[in-house]
Design a protein around this nucleic acid. Structure first.
Length: 286
DNA sequence: TTTAGTCCAGACAGGTTAAG
DNA sequence: CTTAACCTGTCTGGACTAAA
């Protein structure tokens, strides 16, 4: 039976202690609130930012050496609110674009994919336009917001941004191959990988260190962890929903701008990159 | 297969207390 | 004094995670 011995010491559970330690340390969720508060304007070479986060078809365990087809194409357009010459510090979302995309090679989503992204087969994917059609809508969106001319030439200095270098470098390049569409000139060029900027400015206070070598080198923090590392409120919406991911990414970019970080491309895109499953003229080898 | 970090449970050592 | 019960800190190993 239980002994009825009383304890003379003040007992503080170890778990509680650990929580208190995390809250009070400079690596805790409150760190960014104090450390990143600047708001001073710095030279910014871009007029506008197009934040992108594709969702794509996927199979459990197949990894990324796979013909992923884009099924959601969400964009947040951000512009400077306080531009003064070429200096600025405050970014805001001024427009959004969102379309689902109907895949052509494997039009049926796996259960894993539906569960991961929350995207539904009937209502969203089956009813969606094909990728080339969505690309035309995106171009119209950019024309409407005066980023490009009708024929596609750039009017403003803008930069595509994503969480990691993967979206345009891998998913778009794969999709262009599958749809047999050339890289639009208004999407060509290097991109801003927001995640690596966050990694560069949160190292030292190590919320989570990332591998320096090997296949996972540079993968870094996911969006919720980046929000936490910057002292921002938690993720809003549904993770792996493209539009929600991109809205949360917008908060991260806004914060980085406010911290006085110059926002410019940092990841190269090779539109001619090929994967092993790519056959001749858009054919997919299995 | 590969990286590098976090988190958690379990084992263990050592200290303290009350019962025998 | 000896011992069992209890508490704590430390260590270790395994599971888990990261673009879709």
């Amino acid at each position: 039976m239980q002994s009825k011995r009383h304890s003379p010491r003040l007992l503080i559970p170890q778990k509680l202690l650990r929580v208190l330690l995390v809250l009070s340390s400079s690596t805790g969720p409150l760190a960014g609130i104090y450390s990143g508060w600047t708001g001073s304007k710095v030279k910014q070479p871009y007029d506008a930012f197009l934040l992108l986060d594709f969702e794509a078809t996927c199979e459990r365990g197949k990894g990324f050496d796979y013909p992923n087809e884009i099924i959601e194409f969400p964009i947040c357009l951000m512009r400077w609110k306080d531009r003064d010459g070429d200096k600025a510090s405050q970014l805001e979302v001024v427009a959004e674009f969102r379309s689902f995309v109907k895949p052509s090679w494997r039009p049926n989503l796996s259960e894993f994919c539906t569960e991961l992204t929350g995207i539904t087969q009937q209502d969203q994917v089956d009813a969606a336009p094909s990728f080339p059609a969505v690309l035309r809508s995106v171009r119209a969106f950019l024309v409407e917001h005066k980023l490009i001319e009708k024929h596609g030439k750039r009017r403003l200095r803008f930069c595509w941004c994503s969480d990691g270098p993967f979206d345009i470098r891998d998913f778009l390049v794969k999709q262009l191959f599958i749809s047999q569409v050339p890289m639009p000139e208004w999407m060509a060029g290097d991109v801003l990988d927001v995640r690596s900027v966050v990694a560069a400015h949160t190292s030292g206070r190590q919320v989570r260190r990332q591998p320096q070598h090997g296949p996972w080198a540079g993968i870094g923090l996911n969006i919720p962890a980046q929000l936490s590392a910057l002292g921002l409120p938690p993720f809003e919406g549904r993770e792996h929903s493209g539009i929600d991911d991109v809205r949360n990414l917008a908060k991260i970019l806004k914060k980085l701008a406010f911290m006085g970080i110059r926002l410019q491309p940092n990841a190269a895109v090779n539109p001619r990159r090929r994967w092993a499953w790519m056959g001749k003229s858009g054919q997919i080898l299995e």
